[in-house]
Amino acid sequence: MIDVYGIKNCDTVKKARDWLDASGIAYRFHDFKQEGLDAQTAARWIGALGRDVVINKRGTTWRKLSPEQQDLADDAAAAALVSAQPSLVKRPVFDTGGALFVGFGDEQKQALAKT
């Protein structure tokens, strides 16, 4: 089963969930707003995918951070920041148990269809 992480009101997350439902792909949804994001999971994503893939630096949450908060010294600091402010995560995040995907486009659809 695929774990899908995001925010239920996010348009891209809605599209992804609708596509998964229509494709008959089983998944569990984890809403950051309701359930938060633990630092261990954030650290695993950042370690596997890199900070630039996981952290949305174009969103309003990033822009509202102070320059000191935006100065991520290392992956541990990035994981702590993302855990404290999960709205910073690019959405959705798919965890198939064997692979991680961020975003929802043709590449992600093809990969998810194979699971």
Rank of each mutant, 00 (worst) to 15 (best):
W45V: 05
F101W: 11
V102G: 02
F101E: 01
G103S: 06
F101Y: 11
N9K: 11
S66P: 01
G97D: 13
L88M: 08
I25W: 13
H30G: 04
K57R: 06
D71T: 14
G105M: 10
I2S: 00
A22F: 12
G36M: 04
A43Q: 11
D38W: 12
G97R: 15
R44W: 13
F29Y: 12
T96F: 15
A42N: 05
V54H: 02
G103F: 14
S83Q: 07
Q69P: 04
D52L: 03
T12V: 10
V93Q: 04
D71M: 14
D3L: 09
T61N: 01
A42R: 01
T41F: 15
I25M: 09
A99F: 15
R63A: 03
Q40N: 07
A43S: 12
W62V: 00
T115I: 15
S66K: 08
D18V: 09
I46F: 11
Y5G: 00
A16R: 01
I25F: 14
T96H: 14
T115K: 07
K8M: 07
D95V: 13
L100Y: 15
A42H: 07
L88N: 01
T61A: 03
K14I: 11
G50M: 05
V82Q: 00
D52C: 03
K90S: 06
G6D: 02
P86G: 06
R44C: 10
K33P: 05
F32H: 03
G50E: 04
V13L: 04
K15T: 11
F94T: 01
A43V: 05
A78D: 05
D18T: 09
A42S: 06
I55P: 00
A22K: 09
I25S: 05
K8A: 06
T60P: 00
V4F: 11
S66H: 10
N56K: 03
V82C: 03
D31C: 04
A113L: 10
Q40G: 09
L81G: 10
F94G: 01
V54T: 04
Q70G: 05
K90R: 12
T60R: 07
A80C: 09
A42P: 09
R51N: 07
G36L: 03
G6N: 04
W62H: 00
M1Y: 15
S23C: 10
L65I: 05
Q70E: 08
S83V: 09
D38S: 06
W45I: 04
L49V: 08
F94Y: 13
R28Q: 06
K114P: 02
G98Q: 13
F94Q: 02
A113H: 07
Q69V: 11
D3I: 13
D106N: 12
F32D: 00
G59E: 06
S66W: 14
G103L: 07
G103T: 07
L20W: 12
A99S: 11
D21C: 12
V13K: 00
K64I: 02
D38L: 08
T60E: 02
D95Y: 13
K8C: 06
A84M: 08
L100F: 15
K8L: 10
W19F: 11
I55M: 03
P67V: 09
T60N: 02
A111P: 14
L88R: 01
F29T: 05
E68P: 02
G98F: 15
F101R: 02
D74A: 13
